[in-house]
Design a protein around this nucleic acid. Structure first.
Lengths: 198, 198
DNA sequence: ACCTGAACACCGTTCAAGT
DNA sequence: ACCTGAACACCGTTCAAGT
């Protein structure tokens, strides 16, 4: 019944394989940043100095290449959440993490879309990372709700709506202005518990 | 120096041309709604019962087809703004319009992206409509600021960040939940003037 | 195990021929 | 004026042959 496990790329042990794997990843990151998530795979292979078949051998789908290219960044983001969770001010921790997350998740055009889909689709290479990110965010949110700093009725999914909306805005903003900072700030203010509420 | 004027599709006068034009638009709307803004043009032509060359004759670019397919909806949205501008409660008017706008701008996957780019790029078929939409929103915003219901420091561009972020979330939400309602509501609350501020 | 690149498939776009 | 569909171009993907 369940779909096949998604393919997760692994760095080969053999010297030439490892070298090519690294070169492809590096070229992919550069290409994604300049052309977006739908950058030409042929170009990426060319920039990496390998034949197109080699790219496909290491990364059989575009999703697996994106996953590998963003793996480190997402892992970093999750470990940041753990550190912030041990912090005094729960709302400050949540705000700071949201800011970091928005930036990571919008490093190139098309990333938020891929990650958002991955969050709710298990058959996807980035699903595991997205799930972990969801837990991290949910944890920080709950903490800020427990201290009464954030409304109790906000769900984690809604928090991620705010995150992905802000990231999309940042992705698509004209280069000269980054609307996401203000955006997240205001979104969070909309979500804070009001002293005058009730 | 300036780019050529963007091509704006016009309904032909000759009977067969008009018939095909309508059939293509109707097929395009259906295709965009089910497959998104990057639906196959060949499929659309096929569904409309015309050859691919006929589609290109009426709509030389994908952007021109999208513009024609969304023209009515955007015009409706702008006239709605005019009606709401004559309303008593300026904040209620702004909220209601935002809700309508989010829905219109996310009728199919990929639309927000196209319209957001159009807003800041004059060489684009939808630029005129987006500009008008910008004015409508800015007008309603200013009214709600004049009554002191919304923070004075919010810019129209930031309002449209909120609008497009919410629309993107709605576009990409799993079919079973529409996060945008809550999203806009909270975004607006984050933007409302606080009784306890200062 | 890994690499290469020709071959195939698909789709967007153009244009010569037709009514 | 408008329509048709073959032709071309481009790019993603596969796979037989090679080291």
């Amino acid at each position: 019944m369940s779909d096949a496990q998604p393919y997760i790329a692994r760095r080969p042990k053999r010297a030439d394989g490892a070298r090519n794997y690294d070169a492809i990843l590096s070229a992919a990151r550069k290409a994604f940043e300049t052309q977006g998530a739908d950058a030409s795979l042929e170009d990426i292979a060319g920039q990496a100095g390998v034949a197109i078949g080699t790219l496909y051998r290491h990364f059989p789908t575009r999703a697996s290449l994106v996953e590998a290219a963003t793996r480190e960044g997402l892992a970093e983001l999750i470990s940041r959440a753990e550190v912030l969770a041990g912090t005094e001010d729960a709302l400050a921790a949540l705000s700071e993490w949201m800011r970091l997350a928005v930036r990571h998740v919008s490093t190139f055009r098309g990333l938020v879309g891929i990650l958002t889909r991955s969050m709710y689709d298990e058959g996807t290479p980035s699903h595991a990372a997205c799930s972990a990110m969801h837990s991290s965010g949910a944890h920080l949110l709950r903490a800020a709700q427990d201290t009464g700093q954030v409304r109790g009725d906000l769900t984690a999914d809604e928090l991620f709506d705010l995150l992905s909306g802000a990231a999309w805005v940042r992705e698509n903003a004209p280069a000269d202005r980054d609307g996401s900072t203000r955006f997240v700030q205001m979104g969070l203010e909309g979500v804070m518990a009001r002293p005058d509420a009730g």
